[in-house]
Amino acid sequence: MPKSIAIVEDDDDQRENYRDAITKKGYTVSAYGSRKEALSGFDDALPDLVILDIILGEEVDAGFELCRDLLARSPSLPVIFLTERIEEIDKISGLRLGAWDYLPKPISLEYLAERISSLLRINEARYQNSAGGSRGSDSARKIGHLTLDQEALLVSWKNKQIDLSGTEFRMLAKLVRVPGHAVSYETLMNATMQSLVTNNTINTHMRNIRKKFERVDPEFASIKSEYGYGYRWVSK
């Protein structure tokens, strides 16, 4: 049974493009042009994954509200924000609401498809883990205090779970692939799976990741800047 994806986007052209691209990947797609339409659609059946634009018509925060609504109904529902609003504040709000990932426009449909499948897989993995009752540690990798589960998109530091967005997770995964080696900005840019990335974007993401670790462990200092080149993971 193909997974069902819901797309909420007020721009007809973009909506149709998303729909066509995602349908081609073998998903069932239901596309909505407004918050109202979306809500009535969700009343019938909840999709497996939702792609939300934040501004819908006149409603500036419609995407956030929809996200809140959906997560209230199904807390584990993967939500991807897709928007031109890439200001820091929007990212924070979106992620705090429990969104899984956040993609700035213009997007690469290729990357979008990859993310969708990745998120669905991860969600499934988590579901199976919790259903099976056993820790799916087979896919997990341990680097010092860091535990990284690529399958379930789970990260923990000193056995404390850390919530990272999809982008952040992929960046961290790239960073720790060979601990102690500097990873260039370019590599990290690829990891974001966004079409338009600057050093600044990387820096912002890295800072956010660092902060999330420091919240758990104030002594955290494993992410080092390699000025003029990129970042480096240092295990103690």
Partner: peptide, 14 residues
């Protein structure tokens, strides 16, 4: 600009 740009971009990809 980003919205039409995105439309163009995604259209090209499709």
């Amino acid at each position: 600009i980003n919205n039409p740009l995105n439309a163009v971009s995604t259209s090209l990809q499709n």
